[in-house]
Write a protein that binds this DNA or RNA. Structure first.
Lengths: 243, 243
DNA sequence: CCATGTCAGATTGTCGACAATCGACGATCG
DNA sequence: CGATCGTCGATTGTCGACAATCTGACATGG
């Protein structure tokens, strides 16, 4: 981490990491990472006692972490019965991408007049990172960098509620992309998949941007839905056991 | 969605009320109601020990209920320090109404082609309920019925994720409306405040509907922001100070 | 008089044990 | 042999007590 910069910069952003980690947050982060990494498959059971023992924490913080992941859409639970990693469904995919279209369009409308050189430079930088990850064949990095690329417009909007809504969608999206990666071995974005998207975002035609977002999301939804309908091409079984 | 039919329809939505109430849910409902009713003012401290004693439950379920209300934006907390009812801010109002504009526009776009007689009838029914509440001078009912009126399009969309997003906004909106009501004694919608909105929703011009939503939200945001900048016209003190 | 170190109270964070509930298996009866 | 009911294991829900941390006030020294 950056020990060097304690000169100027805004305090809040720098001092935030210093704050104490509660067990709830740590457990939530670890569990989320495990799910999104595919270590625990969609639909797999999550027993509180087993998890609390594995993480070496009591069930209190663990339960609160689970509640958080439920809010994020990564986990589902039924009272007194059981908790599971959220199962995949084609309806969800459609909802995720359609709502994402609306949100991302709104985000660009908010940002549109105030796009400056820094915004454009950052957009290019993140696109370069995505391309680098694709060229390197690093699927996990491809997913992360693509999410960061799309995340820029939400960050730049300065709209906290909008960013919250994006996070709610992003977690679910990650779940499906991770499952896709697990099943097919690769996330699959082409090297030039975001070229027209970037071009429109850098340009001055807002209507063209709207169209580009709609097309981009339509393609994404189609790809993901196609995978869901035929999830296991290689034939090797997916399991949710945790040993 | 199903307004009164228990014949076919999806089972989960109908069977939900039968399911057992966990303490967490009960506490969350009671606390939410208390906050939205104005019994606990924005910014007022919420101490876990006091609340758990008052509700006669242990701190476990109470904490989980608080977590839920935090997600809903009604409560804020800082680790090891304290928990409070969310304070009001003009930035929030702007974000709530701008995002709401985007969501409600999207919802109408989704519903537009499939509006049938039942949708139109239900829309008129809910508008009548709102007018009745306004005529009766019942502020609490006015808020509820107005929210239900706007909620129809989200329900009719059948888009669960969109409805979730609406709930996230609705809670925050209620918080501001309740505060407005507390300060001014009346929520303040005019009798005909939704006439043009309903007319557009019943008509066939989607572009006009988009415009109507934008105007409706702009007016709402202006009213709420104006109240926030001058919150206490009558001069009587609001509760919730730390004594 | 101001700055600084210390302490006590209050509040949240965490833990381990017990209770309530559910789903499935197996016994029993027709 | 099939259906129904009771029982049992598993899992989540709840509880009360203890620990960690923060905030503010107070004492102390410059």
């Amino acid at each position: 981490m950056a020990f060097s910069d304690l000169s100027s910069a805004d305090a809040t952003a720098v001092l935030e990491p210093v704050s104490r980690n509660t067990l709830r947050a740590q457990v939530a982060d670890r569990l989320r990472a495990a799910i999104l990494r595919g270590d625990i498959a969609p639909g797999a059971p999550l027993v509180e006692t087993a998890l609390s023992e594995r993480f070496d924490v009591s069930r209190g913080p663990l339960r609160e972490a689970l509640r958080q992941l439920i809010e994020e859409g990564l986990v589902v639970t039924v009272p007194y019965t059981g908790t599971h990693v959220a199962p995949l469904s084609v309806e969800d995919v459609h909802e995720i991408y359609s709502l994402r279209t609306a949100l991302e369009t709104f985000a660009f409308e908010q940002v549109w007049p105030s796009r400056d050189d820094r915004f454009r430079a950052e957009l290019n930088r993140r696109n370069a990172s995505l391309i680098a990850a694709i060229d390197a064949g690093d699927d996990h990095a491809s997913i992360q960098t693509e999410l960061e690329l799309h995340g820029l417009v939400y960050e730049a909007s300065g709209h906290r509620l909008l960013q919250r809504a994006w996070y709610a969608l992003r977690g679910r999206l990650q779940l499906y992309w991770a499952a896709h990666h697990l099943a097919h071995g690769r996330h699959g974005p082409r090297r030039d998949s975001h070229d027209s998207y970037i071009a429109a975002a850098l340009g001055d035609d807002l209507a063209a941007m709207r169209l580009e977002i709609a097309n981009h999301m339509r393609r994404g939804a189609e790809t993901t839905e196609r995978f869901l309908r035929r999830p296991n091409p290689s034939g090797k079984s997916k399991r949710g056991d945790k040993s």
